[in-house]
Design a protein around this nucleic acid. Sequence first.
RNA 1: GCCGCGAUGCCGGAAUCGGUAGACGGAGCGCACUUAAAAUGCGCCAGGCAUUGCCUAUGGGGGUUCAAGUCCCCCUCGCGGCACCA
Length: 831
Amino acid sequence: MADRVYYRVFGTMPTHAPYPFAEIEPRWQKAWAEARCFRAAQPGEPGSEKPKAYILDMFPYPSAAGLHVGHLEGYTATDIVARYRRMLGMNVLHPMGWDAFGLPAEQHAVQTGTHPRVTTARNIDNFRRQIQAMGFSYDWDREIDTTDPKYFRWTQWIFLKLYEKGLAYVAEAPVWYCPALGTVLANEEVLATEEGPRSERGNHPVERRPMRQWMLKITAYAERLLQDLDLLDWPESLKEMQRNWIGKSEGAEVIFSVVGSGEKIAVYTTRPDTLFGATYLVLAPEHPLVRPLTSPERKAAVEKYVRESAAKSDLERTELAKKKTGVATGATVVNPVNGEKIPIWVADYVLASYGTGAVMAVPAHDERDFEFAREYQLPVRKVIRAESEPEKECFPEDGVNFDSGFLSGLKTSQAKVAMADWLEKNNHGRRQVRYKLRDWLFSRQRYWGEPFPILWNGDRHEPLSDKDLPLTLPELVDFQPTATGEPPLGKAEAWRKLPDGRTRELNTMPQWAGSCWYYLRFCDPKNDAKPWSAEAEKYWMSGGGVDLYVGGAEHAVLHLLYARFWHKVLFDLKLVSHPEPFRRLVNQGIILGEDNRKMSKSLGNVVNPDEVIREHGADALRVFEMFLGPLEQMKPWSSKGMEGSVRFLARVWRLVCEETDSGEWIPSSTLTDGAPSPETVRALAKATAKVTEDLEKLQFNTAISALMVLVNHLTGLVKRPTAAVMQLSRLLAPFAPHLAEEVHARLGGKGLVSVAAWPTFRKEDLQEDSAELAVQVNSKLRGRITVPSLANREEIEALVRAHPDFGGWCGGKTVQKMIVVPGRIVNLISG
RNA sequence: GCCGCGAUGCCGGAAUCGGUAGACGGAGCGCACUUAAAAUGCGCCAGGCAUUGCCUAUGGGGGUUCAAGUCCCCCUCGCGGCACCA
C-alpha cells in the first residue's frame, strides 16, 4: 500500500528536463536581440560590401488561432538557410511581417463589435511572441504590417500607378458574389467543388451576379506571365498550374456569313485544318445573335431552351451533364472554305465566356461535337486520317488531311498554317491567340481593407493625388455588410462625401493587394518618401529577385500570380530592376496529424507549438520538423519522433556537461585539450562536408542525420577534444541555435556562434586509409575485400587475384573478365 | 479524361554519375548501471531456409546492362491540380 502511494505521487512528478532548454533558450534570444546581430546592412552601410542573400517567408495572416506547426516548418527552413548564409559571410535579409487585412478580423467585428484594428493588433502580438519563441533570426527592425497607414499608403500609390497606366478600370460584368461573405470574389478565389462553385476562403456557395466592379488588366500581361516562368527556379508542378491558369491556346478566328442576312458569326478554333469537316455551327445560349437569327417557326423552341440553360447552374451545364442538349435555330451559315450551307444550333456545351461564344462543329474530329452530332443525328464528315493507327469514329488527334481541297495530303501542323494563310488572304478570318486568364476582379464590399484612392464625380472616377495619401479608413461601429450590396464604407457619411460634392469609392481592395509588393517594402521599410529607394531595390533584388522564397502551394494561382503581375507593371515603370520577383521558390509540404489525417480542430489532432516548446524546447521542435523528411513532402507528425530529437540535443549537451547526484549540470570531465585523433578529424570533415552540401540543397533531414553520426562518434570517445565539440557547435548553430550558443560559450568560444564563420574541412581528411569493396561473381555478391583506398584498377585486380578466397569465389571456373570500379565493387565474370 | 508528383523494413525516411539496398531516427528486443523504475550507455533488429552459407526482397510485368530502387516501355494504386476552354 505504501509503495503504491509512493509511485502515484512520484510517478506523476515531471522528471527533470533532459537538458535545461527552458533556461537556455530565452537567455540567448535576449542576447541576440541586444547584440542586434541579425540586422541586415542597407547598401552603403558597413556589411553591405558582403554578397547579399534575400531569404523570405510568405508572411502570415495573423489569425486568432495562432501559428501552427505547418507555418513553423517553412519558417524553420528559411531560418536555417539565413543563419547558414550569415555564417558563410553574407549580408542576409531575412524579414517578417503581417498580412493583416482580411476577412476573419472583420467577421469577428461584425459579431462582437470589436474593431478589427484591436483584434489584429492582439493577433499580431501573439504571432510575434510565438515566432520569437522559436529563435528565428529575423531582422525585426524591418517588421511591416499591411494595415499600417505608413504601409498601405504605398499600396494605394501603386494602385494609382496601375490606374494611370490604364490597367485599372470599372466594368459591369457577371462576377462571383458570395452572399455569406457579403462580397464579390476573383475567379482565382472560387473553387469548383462537387457541391458547385465555392469560395476559397470558408467554402461558402458563390453565385454569378452582374455588378459594377474594379478590374485590373492582368490579361495584358498574360503572355509575359507565361513566358517568364521559364526564368524561374520553381517547382515544375507550380509552374504548370500557372500555365494552365493562363491557358494559352493558338488557333484562328473564322468568319461565317449567315444566309439571307448581313450578319457574320466569328468562331474561334484551334483546328482550322478541320474546316472542311465542319457540318454545323453552335452558338452559346447567351450569344447576342441567337434571338435575331432564329427563324419564326423555331422561335418558341429556342427561347425555351435559352431560358432553361440560364436557369441551370454551372455544374449542371458542365461535368454532371452526361448528355448534351441543344436546339436548331432554323438559320444557316456558309462555310467560307467550300461555300457549303450548314445549320446553326444553340447548345449550352458552348461557353459564352470563352472565345467568341460560338464554335464550328467538326464531329469527326472533336469528341464533344461528335457526342452532340450523334445525339441529334447531324452529319459527320471525316477529313483527317491517322498516319498509322486504325480508323476511329472520332479522331481528334493529328494526322493527314484528305477530301480537304488545298489541304489534302498535308499533315495537321502544315494544314493549320495553310488554312490560316488562306483565311487571312481571303478575308475570312485570321490567326488568333487566346488565354483563359481573365482580368482580376479587384474590389471587395468589405471594411477591413485598403480604401481605393478614387473619387467619383457623378459617373466619372478620378484619382486622388499623391499628397492625399494615405487615405485611411473611417471609424465605424457597425461593420455589417448591407443587404443591398453596398459596402460598409457607405455608412460613413462624413467620410464618403466631400464638400465639393464628389464622393469616395466605397469598395476596398482584396487581401492580395498588400502581399503583392511586401517583399519590395522589406528592402527599405522605413522610407517615408518612396515605397522603396532605387538603391535598396537594386541591392536586395539583384540576381533575379528574392533568392529563396518558401511557402505553401495553396498560393499557386493567387498571391504568386498577382505579385508577378504587379512586379511586371513596376518593371515597365522602371521602379524595379528585374522582371520577376522570386527567383527560387520552394513549397513546404503540409504536416499531417499523428493519425495521418490533415490537422484540424474538429479532428482534435492539432499540435500546438506553444506546448511543444514548453515540453521539449524550441531547438528540439526546429530539429524535429526538419528531420521528419524532405521539406517539400507531406509528412505526419510523431510525438515519439519529437522525443528522439530531444534525445539527440541532450546527447550534444552531455558532451559538454555531466550531471551530479544532486541533479546539477557541471562541466564534463571527459573534455580534453588534446588533439583529435585521425578518426575524429575524419568524422568532423565528413560531417562538415555533408552538412554543407545538404544545406545548399535544402536537404535538412540528411544534414541532421550527418550531425547525429558525428555526435554518436564523439559520444563514443573516452576523451573528447574541445576543438571537435566547438566545431560541432558551429555545424549545429543553424539548426539548434540556442543550444549551439550555450555549448560554444561553455567551451570558452568568443562572441556569438550565430555570427561565427562556417567550418571548413580539408579534402584529404575525408580520405579513409582503406576501402572495403564488394566482390561480385557474375553480378552476385560473394564476398568483400579490403584494399588501400588509393589503389588503382590494376592494383585492385592483383589484390583480388591474390586473395585467399579467390579460388572459392570463382568456383573453379576461369575468370573471363574482371570489372573493377575503385571504391565500389569488383565484378568477376566467369563462364 | 488531361497534366504534375509519388510508391523502399513494423513506422518516418537514406542511397552522388547505374556499382555492397535499408544511413539516421522511431518502435521493438537484449545487456550494463539501479533495491526498483525512469533516465543514460552498449548491442541486436528486411524476410525465408540453414552448419559455414544460400535464396528472396525497393507497387506489378517486361526490357537495356557485367551490374537497375536509379535508365526505357506497359500496367496498378495514392496525392495534388485542371476539367465541355473548341
